[in-house]
Amino acid sequence: MKESSLLARMWKARVVYLFIAPYFILFILFQLIPLVWSFVLSFHQWSGLGDMTFIGFDNYRRLFTSEQFRQVLFNTLFYWAVSIVTIIPISLLLATAINSPWLKRRSLIQTMTFLPYIISWVAAALVFRMLFDHEVGLINISLNALGLQAQPWLISTRLSKIPITILIIWRLVPWYMLIIYSGLKSVDLQYYEAAVIEGANALQRLIKITIPLISTILFFCFITLTIETFRIFAQPYALTQGGPGNSSMSIVQYLYINGFEFFNLGYASTVGYALALILLAVSSLQLRNMVKRNKEMNM
């Protein structure tokens, strides 16, 4: 049979292109054009009205020398690092616990523990704002009852990141627990039986068997959690407004304030690109991994 020409093959697949068209039209309009435009904007000064002024690398220079940006970058890295080292191990332990073959009422436990993920960041933050309030909050009352010092959680530059981090852990553990749990379900029980017979305890089984077997899923959790924590906005917005000072402000909140409160559209775009570049550096590994696997799948 003769190789048909490219155009002929494309014409033959015209219906299929129609199936994909909605995505690609929206992609071009709301992702590709904005991304290029944002790049152009990052070299300009513009308030949204009147003409744009080309200022070269001034926005980037401003970004690197800005005390405030350094602070919000540090805050975001703090949220990211603490989330990674707490959420993934906690989720793994809880998923392993729920996966215990002898456990009764498993679906009740799952339903209850997943609840935090249903609530919005805003609603959860409002509840946490009250729990951590330095006057009426339950946290301080409990600390006092335990003989410990009450702390000004939300109004101290030293402590303001802690309630936000706890909020993030509380709401995200259920999600990662669920993902890891469904990964565990696919692990062959035979490995465990053999390990139990050989006298391995729970911790040994976890480190020697479970973690290697679900390493792909743990890696996926690492990447999605990284993306999620770099994009933090609603959490400080609703819990501390980023304050006091800038002590709990995230990068996206800094972008929002510069863009939509000060109308420095050029500078805000620069902040957006900085965010994308940091994230891209972290997630390029995962991207390569996915593309490779996709090729193996023989599409």
Binding site: A13, I20, S38, V252, G272, A276, K295
Partner: peptide, 25 residues
């Protein structure tokens, strides 16, 4: 169909770009 692999790679790549980057445009 022609271009399938390229489109798929573009799609996955955009999953990594945070939407906040282009929020102003």
């Amino acid at each position: 169909f022609p271009g399938k692999e390229l489109m798929f790679i573009i799609m996955i790549a955009t999953m990594m770009v945070p939407e906040e980057t282009s929020v102003i445009p």
